[in-house]
Write a protein that binds this DNA or RNA. Structure first.
Lengths: 116, 116
DNA sequence: TCATTAATTAATATAATGGTTAAATAAGGG
DNA sequence: CCCTTATTTAACCATTATATTAATTAATGA
């Protein structure tokens, strides 16, 4: 009953929140301060700060220091890993993998019931 | 403090668990019953059943009926959507986007401090 | 030094997640 | 009909996640 600590789960959990994805989208346009990132949202600054901590722990952002601001920057490496993982499933949504492929898969598996 | 209900969050939450990703990996080799899916894991059958419910609600699997078995099948459409979303970030991890690009981005943004 | 601005940490409340065991439901076969 | 097999649902519990407000830390600059 522990928290999942494998890197892929950490990354996907971090991405599984619309506020955090919106923050990443904003950072795709360049670095921003915490206050700038918080502005579009209707939630408190501490809440944004915690979202940023989640993103940082997932390696999706990094932070530096510039006077009293802490500019946040996008770090895309974990996204590359997710993209690589999901590529393994591409054949299941590409048009090449249609009902005929599914049928072949059934038959080669020795599954005699082809109806579903 | 509600549960995120947008489709992308639902999909990513479903994927953010190693047991559920292992189930999807198993299903990539063809449909399987709940019992077959549960076998490799050290957790109870009800726990697997709930994982399957999460995957089903995310549209990542579908279930049919064959006597007293409920065969589970992979449904990859939501993965296609995740792949499309993540593609938007490819340029941030591709080698084309290196420090020089970052510098250009700073300058075109009118950011005078280039040191970080 | 003190006021201001930026951001984090602390304390707290509540909801969601993920696991358990026990009971219920569904289908098949003697 | 009853027994067995397959799976889900119910009830429960511990942990994690996400939000709030209030207090704290950090840096700037009058």
């Amino acid at each position: 009953m522990q928290k999942a600590s494998d890197p892929m789960s950490v990354t996907l959990s971090a991405l599984a929140d619309p506020t955090r994805r919106a923050i990443l989208a904003r950072l795709a346009g360049g670095e921003a301060s915490v206050g700038e990132l918080a502005a579009p949202f209707d939630i408190s600054l501490p809440a944004i700060s915690r979202h940023l901590k989640v993103l940082e722990e997932a390696g999706l952002v990094s932070r530096s220091r510039n006077a009293q601001w802490r500019p946040v920057q996008l770090q895309a490496a974990p996204l590359r890993d997710v993209a690589a993982w999901i590529e393994e499933y591409r054949r299941f949504w590409d048009e090449g993998f249609d009902k005929l492929d599914a049928l072949i898969e059934h038959l080669t598996k020795g599954d005699s019931d082809v109806s579903n």
